[in-house]
């Protein structure tokens, strides 16, 4: 599923003393099956932007085109778009409300009036995708689970709608390192299995660098840059000026280059850095 954002501007509370421009002329093209990272500091407009992608917010001006259909043209069924563009908010576990895990995850599909056997199939699949065993958790109260498990149940609730685009706003915030890695691994598996489009909003440049194909950078309501991780993280100075960082490992290699060392600067992971440094040491040894 593709999404095109055209000249999107959003003003909160227009015409009041509290008026504030949250998005200014944003243009963004997301092709089917792409994995995007969306970065920017707090208040840069990331959350406002993603809430437009499934029609939760209406543009003040501009267009959102999902699979060729303008979300806000007449006769468009916005509800069906919301089922296809799944949005996982920050701390989604705060939205759990049902008595059992099964009921919570099934809430969406039941509202779609799917037959019960279909509902069960979707709930099973969704829980399995987030690494939970259906039989083990289905009758438990979501509130007796650990924080990491609650987060997974909440994500499963969105997956049970079989979205074609999945948007996750800081899905690993507040989790411990293992919980973080597990959730991210599940997103990668999910993408492979269902071939869906994923947009990951994150403050962790390390996670973004490891996972995504492309990065969009928001700053003061504008999308000021987009490109591959190597392109985006190559501009260390520009990102720091916006209060953003780059992965520590990328910064390390750039610093070594500044000191005149002959190593690649566009390194994104520890493994790449290790190989690059081993090569450089060998070069020096044979020189």
């Amino acid at each position: 599923m593709s999404i095109v954002v055209k000249n999107l501007t959003h003003v909160y509370m227009p015409g009041t003393p509290f008026e504030s421009v949250a998005l200014k002329d944003v243009n963004w093209e997301i092709a089917d099956g792409e994995f995007w990272g969306l970065i920017g500091h707090t208040g840069s407009g990331k959350s406002t932007l993603i809430q437009h992608l499934n029609g939760l917010l209406k543009p003040t001006s501009g267009e959102i085109i999902v699979n060729g259909v303008n979300l806000h043209s007449k006769g468009v069924n916005i509800k069906s778009i919301r089922q296809k563009v799944g949005l996982v908010f920050q701390y989604p576990e705060h939205q759990l409300f049902e008595e059992t895990v099964e009921k919570d995850v099934a809430f969406g599909p039941r509202n779609m009036n799917l037959p019960e056997d279909q509902v069960e199939k979707r709930v099973r699949e969704a829980l399995e995708l987030v690494g939970l065993n259906y039989e083990e958790v289905k009758d438990k109260s979501p509130f007796e689970l650990s924080g990491g498990q609650m987060r997974r149940v909440a994500i499963a609730g969105v997956l049970a709608m079989n979205p074609e685009v999945l948007i996750l706003d800081e899905p690993t915030a507040g989790l411990d390192p293992r919980g973080r890695d597990e959730i991210l691994d599940e997103i990668v598996t999910l993408r492979k299995r269902r071939r869906i489009t994923v947009i990951l909003v994150s403050h962790s440049m390390e996670d973004i660098a490891k996972l995504v194909d492309k990065i969009a950078v928001m700053h003061r309501g504008k999308m000021i840059k987009s490109g591959t991780p190597r392109e985006i993280f190559g501009d260390y100075k520009g990102l720091t000026a916006m209060g953003l960082g780059i992965p520590q490992i990328t910064e390390l290699m750039l610093r070594l280059r500044e000191k005149g060392k002959n190593v690649a600067g566009d390194i994104l992971t520890v493994e790449e850095a290790r190989d690059e440094i081993l090569k450089a040491i060998r070069r020096k040894g044979s020189a």
Binding site: D176, P247, Q248, I249, L252, V270, E271, R274, I277
Partner: peptide, 20 residues
Amino acid sequence: IGLDVPQVTELAHQLKNAGI
């Protein structure tokens, strides 16, 4: 135990394992 180390610490560890 499910914890992490900073990326530079991880890199030093991997380089050491590679005989550096």
